[in-house]
Amino acid sequence: MTAPEPLAATSASPPPAPQRTKPRESASTWPLVDRIGLSLCWAAGIALCLVMGGILAYMAVRGVQYLRPSLFFESPTPEQDQSKSGGFLDPLLGTVLITAVGTLIAFPIGVATAVWLNEYRRPWGLARAVESGVEVVAGTPSVVLAIFGLIIFQQSYFGFLSLTAEGDAVLGRSFFTAGAMMALIALPLIVGSTRAGLQQIPDHVREASYSVGKTKAATIRRVLLPSCRPAIATGTVLGMGRIIGDTAIVVILLGASLQLQSVGDVPGLSTLKGSGSTLTSYVFNNSPAGEGQSPEKAYAAAFVLLLVVVALNYAVNRITSREAPQWIR
């Protein structure tokens, strides 16, 4: 008889609706292990901010301190007196040239490989082999690619592509050979990005194209490639970034001459066959590790490199933030 009493009491006067307590964000109630984890996490985050901020600020200060407009317009000269050793016009041109050569080679091969891997894929075993091959290139150190390039391009039948010493010895060093090896380091990025773009296109788009009588080749050319253009562009820009930033291939395959050296008298081609330097090798050679002892110019050139990287990053951001076509989703 007494049991229902409390029930009746509660139904008679319902307790006030539970107060919404403020979510307790404070970590002070957490177990000790979790608090240690949290503090480690914050420590890592703060260290990251400090290091990244430090690097960027330091480079910016040094860059602004040492960068002069005249550096862009003067050729470097081997001079002990640093006020006379010129600027980095030639390395800058060299960077542009080598990036152009590398991208021009890597772009068609990379896109073709990606399309074949994604759309045709037969025979299956071969496709799998190509896939792992691309993965292997992506992991291969660029020094190894560089000295592999030396083996290939020192063969006498490739002599027309590079510098030759007296007595018909092929040196294998030129903008062309360095650019060709640079293409290999840009290739995996282009392939990967293009494949990711192709995989995002749903199958019904391909089927729609077949159903109106287009062949597979026409579908690829008119439908698939145009709609994954942003992905291809992203891969290409990332590849260009890798080419611009690589030093080992330049140091080994381009030689160490400061100025552009042309070979032969065909304009354009002669420069491609000649040797030179790029911004990265300019930085390397002007640092205490190289011969030229002029850290100021190395800092200035490194700052320019950093600006180029910023610009490329911005380009990638612009490309990837553009909206995909409606029908892709």
Partner: peptide, 10 residues
């Protein structure tokens, strides 16, 4: 994306 030679220089 910063080239390694820049890290080396620093």
């Amino acid at each position: 994306a910063v080239p390694s030679v820049v890290y080396g220089l620093i």
